[in-house]
Design a protein around this nucleic acid. Sequence first.
DNA 1: CACTTGACCTGTCCGC
DNA 2: TGCGGACAGGTCAAGT
Length: 294
Amino acid sequence: MPELPEVETVRRGLEKLIVGKTIISATNDNHKSFPNEPTEVSEFMLSTTPTAVRRRAKVLLIDLSSKYTLVIHLKMTGQMVFVANDSDRFSAGHPSDSMLGELPDKSTRVIITFSDGSKLFFNDQRKFGWMRLMPTISVPEIDFMKRVGPEPLEHSFTAKILFERLQRRKNSSIKSALLDQSVVAGIGNIYADESLWGAQIHPATHVGTISFSKIKILTTEIKTVLQLAIDKGGSTDRNYRNAEGKKGSYLAFARVFRREGQECPRCGTIIEKIRTAGRGTHFCPTCQVERKTK
DNA sequence: CACTTGACCTGTCCGC
DNA sequence: TGCGGACAGGTCAAGT
């Protein structure tokens, strides 16, 4: 579920909420969600302080004063939700309907408690997500980190770079290639569909048939869509919540994602939903015409 | 090596 | 209401 804008939104929230606090306990209901040994957790996590919250692709990195890092992947349904202690919550006012209910709930896998009584909940309905404690210096050695492509919102990410990196996937569909994290970091199903609509490229188009000038447009669309989504606090289709338990609002601005049967905002044609690269794929059959030529 | 498919899990929605 | 099947935003291992 969470793609780059959602993970970035969580990162910004956690940076504000937990940096400088002291961890006093970490309870774990699911070995797969957090497989570190209790002795490791005790030695390198308890009595330490989060010093920074970083993001690479869809991976969240909480650096601790012990020189260890909590590496977190939310996968489809993971959430990192911070809850202040009870007296703070009381003074914070009425709960909004965009908030989660009481925590912990049945999806709660890990609870991190800070010395001021506040808590950080790692919830994950489908148990695909995970967190791992490891030395900060080892994080770049994770296979995923070595393979993952450039950050699309960096200024150094250009059409030339995207075009070059796409060459390794020139025989697959552009949709499949955009979902490949080794081509470009952080794009998932929502923002792949939205970017391809913006660039007027049919999702099933073979990468090798797309011109450089079209990739230039796609590069701009990727940046624009991701930035807008961050500005809207990400997309909440069902599960996603930010670090304060609130939903994101990007889907109200989506042009094709989850809009099958509705009119294309550019040409009025009815949006279709197909399966491409094994994923639900939304597009406008009129303005995203399949390109067979170079 | 490039590419596709199935697996990992639980919950929800849709048709019968 | 209940039940079976399809499907859900991500990634990896195993297959072709």
